[in-house]
Amino acid sequence: MNKRYSNPQLWMLVVLRVAIGWHLLYEGIVKLMNPNWSSVGYLMDSKGWFAGIFHDIASNPGLLQAVDFLNIWGLILIGLGLVMGVFTRAATIAGIALLGLYYLSHPALINANYVIPSDGSYIFVNKNLIEMLALGVLLVFPTGRIIGIDRLIFRKTAAR
């Protein structure tokens, strides 16, 4: 097996998948456990091309509640999917979409200053974009059916 990947390649791809999964899962858990958490501040702080849309979401209580719910459970499910390698492809695509939204709401523009101080220096490329691109790499170099529960779920398909 694993003819396509050498052992170091497979090893690094799985470690990358688990690390991103860990990060997203913990972000979800933290929000779930904090009764005061809401995305409203983050959305209101949006700048750049789509800021208006994100501000509108923040000022609509019903929509905001839905976005908060989807964000928390999206993060948790995507995180679990990536860590355990279960429905890995769906989790990867959803992760790319979610991180894409984070990037679009807070793009690293030359003139954009956000309320939360940045932990580094970014211009156009920031860590959300890099994490999203890393998931893109995992989408084209999948590992869930080699190391992961997908190996058990998709066994029949794989064995066709």
């Binding site: 799985v14 899962l25 190391i147 992961g148 529960i149």
Partner: peptide
């Protein structure tokens, strides 16, 4: 072997749970 490889990353959740 399938079981081992299928479940290989599950213990990572234990480490995360301990941290949390």
């Amino acid at each position: 072997r399938d079981l081992l490889k299928g479940m290989a990353t599950v213990p990572v959740l234990g480490a995360l749970a301990y941290g949390v």
